[in-house]
Design a protein around this nucleic acid. Structure first.
Length: 708
DNA sequence: GAGCACTGC
């Protein structure tokens, strides 16, 4: 056990006061109020504006109202978009009550599964995801006079897409009788990039609440941030005034381990005179909501709360009473590796903007201190901004969405930070194999001249250029000479109607063809949400025993049928929360799956698909699954190891897959590959299928290549 | 033999 010894404390540089407290602002109203006139006159004049202000400046609640009351014409509609559902609903509710109106009348919201809107709604809060979907039926965003994009500094996937779509819509409406006004709001003062993207749009600064925040960096680099974390927690506990501590760590295991040591150490320390108790509270998204709620309840006056959190506390949850922040300086980030065709979850250093965000969580209710477990020099060497999500994730869904919107050139779509051409090509190739897009020759004047007149062909060297797509080595056309245009097929348009990965959407449609749509709705729903099974940390004491009881759901065919069985049992229980707890299942994810299924079913009905069930033929849903997930196929080699058809890379069966309970199956489909650690590539979830089903599902080009 | 956080008319 580690104890905070005198010689192992983390030395911090002398405190520097970066700002002063100003509690008067609390009563005088929000800082933004005095800037109202100036903002309004700028908004009237400009077609695009950037608003910079801290959370707490009131910009998210006030700017939309200024626009509605003083900028748009009577009856004009303002849309405010956010990365997160809870924020959209909370803001709508807050603004609605500020205006003493009923939520859903003048002020409303629209998020997935939930909306409060009426024909008279002129101020609508929504999520970026909803806005991106709306653009499919309304690419000019014609319903809105003003579009406000909030929290743009987070660079969430849908925010970047929405921003690019908004620019395109604004361009299309420029010079018409109803131009689109765009207001982009960000908390990061570093707006050079954003400003250039928005053609030099003026930046309007809103003064934030002035709060006292003291930053202390480590004096020397720390080799072990977990050790430094423990030392600092107890140093703060011994030396600093009352106030709760928020610690940023990377993940569940690390948090639980640190919590255990912390509790042991505190039992030792509390024996000493004058040392108060501490209450250690883990906080991460996999925890059941009831356990998460504990961080919001106050502790007794003689006790100090220590919250050990992941990134969830950086943006999603704001914990009251935090006075001290301990920032480990590291974060876990998911990246999609197109070459491996896998998600890689890795620990890395935070960006400066994230460090600022973490520090800002201290002293929201009074003067605070942020302890950084890294030196000021190390801080200065950090990247100023985090890599935008659009450069880290699989683009298959995003590109299908853009094509459905009618974006003319998806390969050259003007994102603020463009994804790599390889990532785009990999996703287009996937869409092509799914039959969602095709490349058609478009003979432009220039191209015709070139090919007919002098017969120029791509030179041999460029023609034989290879690139790796989804891990497969593929010959690519020379892009300079490539006159092929990417167009959406009828199938692609149908796939885009579903809020699903295109692969799963295709499997769902195959369910209609094979008369097992009801079963496929369940497969699609359970595979598109996080696992139903609680991991050890989220379990109650009796949990492990009950988890064993859960084995009764295990299907020899793997995870899709197993999860479907759990889901059916959940519905049979009457969607009962107690039943979930008794069986150590994640109620939130089961409820989510049930809402997803309902939504998918409604879309199927709208598309005119007939509901059908394969009650007497259990293999039909598995065959349908093959028709969507064939790119995720894996085979068992003679040496009893699994290998991906697409990439020929070895993969292993992940530890939580239901297939581990049965003997090795010759062909399986995986539902997500994870890379990292010692295991190489591992399949998080997998379902066994028959080789002939895979054969009938494959497009000809792949059937030939894979020799099925 | 191991899961950061979000989101989808």
């Amino acid at each position: 056990m580690m104890a905070p010894r005198g010689d192992s404390h983390v030395p911090y540089k002398r405190p520097r006061l970066s700002s002063t407290g100003d509690l008067a602002n609390d009563r005088l109203g929000l800082p933004i109020a005095e800037a109202r006139q100036a903002l309004v006159s700028q908004f009237r004049r400009l077609d695009t504006a950037i608003v910079v202000g801290d959370t707490g400046s009131g910009k998210s609640t006030q700017v939309p109202q200024y626009l509605l009351d003083h900028v748009v014409p009577r009856g004009g509609v303002v849309c405010v978009s956010q990365p997160r559902r809870v924020a959209a609903i909370a803001l709508a509710s807050r603004v609605s009550s500020e205006r003493a109106s009923v939520l859903g009348a003048q002020v409303g919201y629209s998020v997935r599964f939930e909306r409060a809107l009426s024909p008279g709604t002129t101020l609508c809060f929504c999520t970026d995801g909803v806005l991106c979907r709306e653009a499919i039926s309304d690419p000019r965003l014609a319903r809105y006079d003003v579009l406000v994009l909030d929290e743009v500094h987070e660079r969430a996937l849908h925010t970047d897409v929405a921003l690019a779509l908004a620019r395109a819509a604004q361009g299309a409406r420029r010079g018409t009788r109803r131009p689109l006004k765009l207001v982009v709001m960000t908390a990061t003062p570093d707006v050079l990039r954003l400003r250039r993207y928005l053609n030099g749009a003026p930046v309007l600064f809103v003064r934030g609440r002035q709060r006292a925040l003291e930053l202390r960096h480590a004096k020397s680099p720390q080799l072990d941030y977990l050790h430094a974390t423990l030392v600092t927690i107890f140093q703060v506990h011994r030396e600093e005034d009352r106030g709760d501590i928020l610690v940023f760590l990377t993940g569940q295991d690390e948090i639980e381990a640190t919590a255990r040591i912390c509790r042991q150490l505190s039992r030792v320390a509390v024996g000493n005179a004058g040392v108060h108790r501490i209450e250690v509270l883990p906080l991460y998204s996999a925890l059941p909501p009831t356990v998460q709620q504990r961080v919001f309840s106050p502790v007794s006056p003689d006790c100090r709360k220590v919250v050990l959190a992941t990134n969830i506390a950086e943006t999603s949850l704001t914990i009251p009473g935090i006075r001290y922040v301990i920032d480990s300086g590291v974060v876990k980030i998911k990246r999609h590796n197109a070459e491996l065709g896998a998600e890689v979850l890795a620990v890395g250093p935070v960006a400066q903007s994230q460090a600022a965000q973490r520090a800002g969580r201290a002293g929201r209710d009074g003067p605070g201190i942020c302890f950084r477990l890294y030196t000021h020099k190390q801080f200065m060497a950090l990247s100023p901004l985090a890599t935008p999500e659009i450069q880290r994730c699989d683009l298959t869904s995003v590109l299908l969405n853009l094509l459905a919107i009618g974006v003319p050139n998806v390969e050259d779509f003007d994102f603020m930070d463009r994804p790599s051409p390889d990532a785009i090509q990999a996703s287009l190739q996937t869409l092509q194999w799914l039959g969602a897009v095709k490349r058609i020759e478009t003979i432009t004047q220039g191209a015709r001249g070139m090919q007919a007149d002098n017969g120029v062909r791509p030179s041999k060297s460029t023609n034989e250029e290879h690139s790796t797509i989804n891990g497969m080595v593929v010959k690519t056309d020379d892009r300079k000479n490539n006159q092929k245009k990417i167009v959406l097929t009828t199938l692609g348009r149908t796939l885009a109607a579903f809020p699903l990965d295109p692969q799963l959407a295709k499997a769902l449609l195959a369910g209609s063809e094979l008369s097992c749509l009801e079963e496929m709705l369940t497969f699609a729903a359970v595979l598109s949400v996080d696992s139903f099974f609680l991991t050890s940390a989220g379990r109650s004491k009796e949990g492990d025993q009950a988890a064993t009881a859960c084995l009764r759901f295990t299907s020899p065919d793997g995870d899709a049928p197993t999860l479907a069985a759990v889901f059916r049992a959940y519905l049979a229980s009457g969607s009962n929360k107690t039943w979930c707890i008794e069986n150590t299942l994640n109620h939130r994810n089961l409820r989510l799956a049930s809402e997803v299924r309902k939504q998918l079913r409604d879309i199927c009905v709208k598309l005119g698909l007939k509901m059908s069930s394969s009650r007497n033929e259990p293999s039909l849903p598995l065959r349908a699954l093959c028709r969507g997930l064939f790119l995720q196929a894996v085979r068992l080699r003679p040496d009893r190891k699994y290998e991906s058809f697409a990439t020929h890379r070895p993969v292993t069966l992940g530890p939580s897959s239901a297939l581990r309970a049965v003997s090795l199956r010759p062909v399986v489909l995986h539902h997500g590959l994870a890379a990292g650690g010692s295991a190489g590539l591992s399949m998080r979830r997998a379902t066994a299928v028959k080789s002939e089903w895979l054969g009938e599902a494959l497009p000809a080009a792949l059937a030939h290549r894979w020799m099925i």
